[in-house]
């Protein structure tokens, strides 16, 4: 396994409109690793993800995805880069008017020239990978939350992206389904060698899948910790990091015992 960086974020300034949410962010994502971006609500995790996949242009700095600076590249180059990434949105973002199979076929039809029969087989493979065998002809509203996530994951994996971005993959799921999704992520990473970038604040998921974490903070508008989550939990000096990993309240509200 190479340890080359596949994503490099340099001096990134990000936010919406005039409001700066992320200030001077620097970090790398190594090839074939699972990196978790974490932090409390409103710290800019999702904003960072939106910048990394090119949905929002940053106010400053560079984001190199597989060597291309998506903050400043041309449209043609950007489109090429998009082929290398797959995204699972928080609500799965399946197209409601299409069946699960049609949803997955969309990127395959756009980016490959497979014959129709092979596309059908490939869709079956992808669905089997996310353990949704037999759900080809279901419409998204007929699926449960966990199944929608899986179908979204199958669509994100449709053209075998080098990098997979997952926005809160286990949000709103029961612990068992959530653990299954975690296993699936590990499996995909191991077998296909896909680099995975996850945004989440679910502690159980973080410890289950993360090889490295990048922790953001709302007040500092930047990274306050980076490294192995187990190490950070035990050895971090930072109050916020400690409170996050140990699930304690930082403001330490004492219950009134009188």
């Amino acid at each position: 396994m190479t340890t080359q960086s596949i994503i490099k974020v340099k001096n990134l300034i990000g936010g919406y409109g005039e409001e700066v949410i992320l200030n001077n962010i620097n970090f790398d994502v190594k090839e074939s690793e699972i990196l978790v971006i974490l932090g409390g609500s409103g710290c800019g995790k999702s904003t960072l993800l939106r910048h990394m996949v090119g949905l929002n242009r940053p106010m400053g700095g560079n984001i190199y995805v597989d060597g291309v600076d998506i903050a400043s590249c041309h449209d043609a180059e950007f489109k090429k880069t998009l082929k290398k990434i797959g995204i699972l949105f928080q609500g799965a973002a399946l197209f409601g008017s299409m069946t699960v199979a049609e949803n997955i076929a969309l990127p395959i039809l756009e980016y490959t020239d497979l014959p129709k029969k092979s596309i059908k087989n490939l869709i079956r493979m992808k669905l089997s990978l996310v353990e949704l065998d037999g759900y080809e002809n279901h419409l998204p509203f007929e699926l449960s939350g966990g199944m929608k996530k899986r179908a979204g994951l199958a669509r994100a994996l449709a053209i075998n992206p080098k990098i997979l971005f997952l926005d809160e993959p286990s949000a709103g799921l029961d612990p068992i389904t959530s653990a299954e999704i975690d296993q699936l992520i590990l499996h995909i990473n191991k077998v296909l060698g896909t680099t995975v970038v996850i945004v989440t604040h679910e502690l159980a998921s973080i410890f289950a899948v993360a090889q490295r974490v990048v922790m953001l903070d709302k007040k500092k508008k930047g990274i306050i910790a980076e490294g192995d989550p187990k190490f950070l939990k035990q050895h971090s000096e930072n109050e916020t990091v400690k409170a996050f990993f140990n699930r304690t309240s930082k403001s330490a509200i004492q219950p009134d015992r009188n």
Partner: peptide
């Protein structure tokens, strides 16, 4: 080699 290759072999 990835699952597209696997697909080709399978077919």
């Amino acid at each position: 080699f990835d699952d597209y290759g696997a697909l080709a072999l399978m077919e």
